[in-house]
Amino acid sequence: MTTQTAQQALAEATNRKDAPSVVDVIAAGKPFPTEVHAEMRNTDAVVDVDQFSLWYGQTRALFEIKLEIPRQGVTALIGPSGCGKSTLLRSINRLNDLVDSVRTDGQMLLNGSPVYAPDVDVIELRKRLGMVFQKPNPFPMSIFENVVYPLRIDGENRRGLLMEACERALKAAALWDEVKDRLKHSALRLSGGQQQRLCIARAIVADPEVLLLDEPCSALDPLSTLRIEELITEISQRYTVIMVTHNMQQAARVSQATAFMYLGRLVEFGPTQSIFQTPHLDETEQYVSGRFG
């Protein structure tokens, strides 16, 4: 089955002009085969999304997503607003469980262990992932307590250890120099860019397996954006990063792989370079060049 769809896709790719457009296929309600570039097949997947669907009550937000996120480096999720990027990201750490009416289907594996199985301990699962949100959300406590929050809730109270972890995370998040003299101050008084870097520090303090970033720069000025982009590049040496972004340049600059989503489907997935320069599908090309979506 899988090979067949891949062949079909290949046929469509070589013969683009005659194939019906993605929009038409989706509008007709037909199952849509994801265009996965050859480089992205059979990689060592950290997050393996397998035919994953998600409903908010009656409305379906994700349609049989199949996506293998490669180890190390940054994978960018792009697509027009409302296409389900955040939903997909939040499905990986099951943050969507907090919404009452959510129903899921399909499977997802994080480093080989299932994410959606009845006996999965959601809290343990979330401890393996770090997440940064669109809007900086520091907690109403000191900078220090913010950074070590994930360790605190694990019951870690040894001061020296916490201090060390805090320093390491803040340095990794390029915030240490700015706040090292006021770790005891309230985190809410930091500037927006600093707050976002603080959130990144908090997300990496407990050494997550994967870092999930949901438009981490959208509330920031260009300079802060630049710093955070550099930061992401640096962090991605050690962690696998999945990042949602609306900024094409950012995706091009930072990521190694890019997935293009549209109306709850994963449309095309490939190395960033080829997605931006030689995409297989017209829609992808139009989207990345800003003429669609």
Binding site: N93, K127, F133, N137, F139, P140, R202, A206
Partner: peptide, 11 residues
Amino acid sequence: SMREGSYGCGA
């Protein structure tokens, strides 16, 4: 957003 941040940390 604050609650989500906390849940996201594994709380």
